[in-house]
């Protein structure tokens, strides 16, 4: 099967559709059109740039350059996590918790995959490393952002309940246990859902791409399974870490609830 190269016209048509959606939002006063168009433009520019960078990079074998690129990816992901919080942690903690939990999960899982599962030679071959890390970062980012956002929002709105438990002598971990658990759930539900319906309702993005690119379907399926399972593990690990550190940060050394460590919502 030959790969059919996409023309600028093809991309133009799909961009036009998003523009139409933005127009519709404007007409219905949904207030989401602007953000939708900005996000779409971002993805357009970012992906084209990525395509160009990867073209150059794939001929490259300089591990330092590849390392630098992974760090850039991580820092952008951490910024996204922070941006998605309604109540942000004060003083760079939101960024720090996001960065650390994604690094812990995405980087370790990517390494595990490259070294032990796919056994790429050398392990930092950009053709494998960058897409794998990207998939993992993208998904753990969603999980971490959702969990942290849910945690800080719930803690903010349930201040009275948390403090009521502290007043009765509960330890912080006990006073926030259910909130922490629900936050974790909210971060993991997307990946659980996408694993449940993968192949039945939805054809996962990576597999679709590989098939369109000419890979035999069964090979594409095997890769997709691998990725889904790794994403599930990475998202779980990252979200658990983020929620535990995030919950801990809400209390101080005298076991007081310190909501002053979160910023008030902006709108």
């Amino acid at each position: 099967m030959e790969l059919i190269s996409l023309t600028p016209t093809a991309l133009g048509i799909s961009a036009l559709l998003v523009l139409l959606l933005g127009l519709l939002s404007q007409l219905l006063h949904l207030g989401i059109g602007r953000r939708m168009i900005i996000a779409a433009s971002r993805s357009l520019v970012q992906l084209l740039l990525l395509g160009m960078v990867l073209t150059i990079l794939f001929d490259q074998r300089n591990p330092w350059l590849i390392g630098l690129i992974t760090l850039v990816m991580l820092s952008v992901a951490s910024r996204e996590v922070t941006a998605r919080q309604k109540h942000r942690y004060v003083g760079g903690w939101g960024y720090g918790i996001g960065a650390l939990s994604m690094m812990l999960s995405s980087f370790s899982v990517t390494l595990l995959c490259l070294l032990l599962i796919i056994r790429v030679e050398p392990w930092y071959s950009p053709q494998y490393l960058i897409p794998l890390l990207g998939m993992l970062l993208g998904n753990t980012m969603s999980g971490v952002a959702l969990s942290l956002d849910n945690l800080s929002q719930t803690a903010w709105s349930k201040r009275g309940e948390i403090e009521a438990r502290l007043i009765l002598g509960a330890e912080p971990g006990e006073a926030i246990r259910e909130i922490r658990r629900d936050a974790l759930r909210s971060g993991l539900i997307p990946i659980i859902n996408s694993m449940s319906v993968a192949g039945v309702v939805s054809l996962p993005g990576m597999m679709t791409g590989q098939i369109l690119g000419g890979t035999p379907p069964l090979e594409a399926a095997k890769y997709q399974i691998l990725i889904l399972l790794l994403i599930a593990f990475g998202t779980g690990l990252g979200s658990i870490f983020a929620v535990y550190v995030g919950a801990r940060r809400l209390f101080d050394e005298r076991q007081r609830l310190r909501l002053d460590r979160l910023r008030p919502a902006r709108d």
């Binding site: 403090e163 009765l168 076991q255």
Partner: peptide, 13 residues
């Protein structure tokens, strides 16, 4: 520890 103190001194908000 604060939790121990809070069990000792009952506060009714």
């Amino acid at each position: 520890p604060a939790p121990q103190w809070r069990r000792l001194v009952g506060f009714l908000p």
